[in-house]
């Protein structure tokens, strides 16, 4: 049911792209047409696959680590006043820093390999996950807490049996946002310094005026991001549910 509109939109986008190419007759190293990009993609499929795998690994590791860190932080913040006083301002401040500006220093600290990119992805998704889950944990309906109090519940039980389940829909929206941001983080990391990954391939192709390969890598990244987003969306459907 959803496939048909998606297909129509894709065809429409390709048509516009082709129309721009035909009407402006720009040289292929400025704007390659869809057919050329498809052809380049196919002839370079082994290279693209290899770099996609590298980026995918960075993104998935970053997503897992960032989400785990965000969840733990949110629970810490929600349960401890001291943590709120000490950590929250720091958290907001790190968000005020442009993550892009941190990429070179991360590369300096963690090297050109996998981990500087994972760190970028973690940094970029840590805040949305923490903030949305924390927000959910602090907005537990008052009535539930009243009821729990009349039942002489322990704060621990209230946290795990009421506050956390009630906050899961908020966590789900944080994770969905994270799935969109994580590839951006990884690619920024690759731009600053890497020897593999789709971001690296794009930069490489661009530098050699292989614009068609640049486009092929970029579109692959786009498709990967969309698939990741859909997967996470589906995976979190259960916890985002009824309210």
């Amino acid at each position: 049911m959803k496939a048909l509109p998606a297909l129509a939109a894709t065809v429409f986008a390709l048509l516009i792209w082709q129309a721009v190419v035909s009407l402006t007759s720009l040289p292929r190293f400025i704007l390659p047409g869809p057919a050329l990009v498809a052809e380049t993609w196919w002839t370079n499929r082994a290279v693209i696959a290899e770099h996609t795998l590298a980026t995918a690994l960075e993104v998935l590791l970053g997503l897992a680590l960032g989400a785990a860190l965000g969840i733990v932080t949110a629970i810490q913040l929600a349960t401890s006043r001291i943590a709120r006083v000490l950590v929250q301002p720091m958290l907001v401040f790190t968000q005020a820093l442009p993550v892009f500006a941190l990429a070179p220093i991360l590369t300096l600290w963690l090297g050109y390999g996998l981990w500087s990119k994972v760190a970028m992805a973690v940094l970029i998704i840590y805040f949305p996950v923490t903030a949305s889950f924390f927000d959910g944990l602090m907005r537990t309906p008052r009535g539930y807490l009243d009821l729990a109090q009349t039942m002489q519940a322990s704060p621990r039980a209230v946290l795990w049996r009421i506050r956390v389940p009630a906050a899961l829909p908020s966590l789900a929206s944080g994770l969905r946002l994270a799935a969109v941001y994580a590839p951006i983080g990884a690619v920024i990391g690759e731009w600053v310094g890497a020897s593999r990954g789709l971001g690296y391939l794009m930069l490489l192709a661009n530098g050699r005026a292989k614009t068609d390969l640049m486009f092929a890598a970029m579109l692959t990244l786009g498709v990967f991001s969309v698939l990741l987003h859909l997967t996470v969306r589906r995976a979190t459907a259960g916890i985002a549910g009824e309210r």
Partner: peptide, 28 residues
């Protein structure tokens, strides 16, 4: 003291049985 409000305060993610035994679950 037991308490019952206008809002039934049922946890939407828990079954009827789980809601009824909520007190025991919250006290471990």
């Amino acid at each position: 003291v037991g308490y019952m409000a206008q809002d039934d305060l049922l946890l939407p993610w828990a079954t009827v049985s789980q809601n009824v035994v909520l007190g025991a679950r919250l006290r471990g």
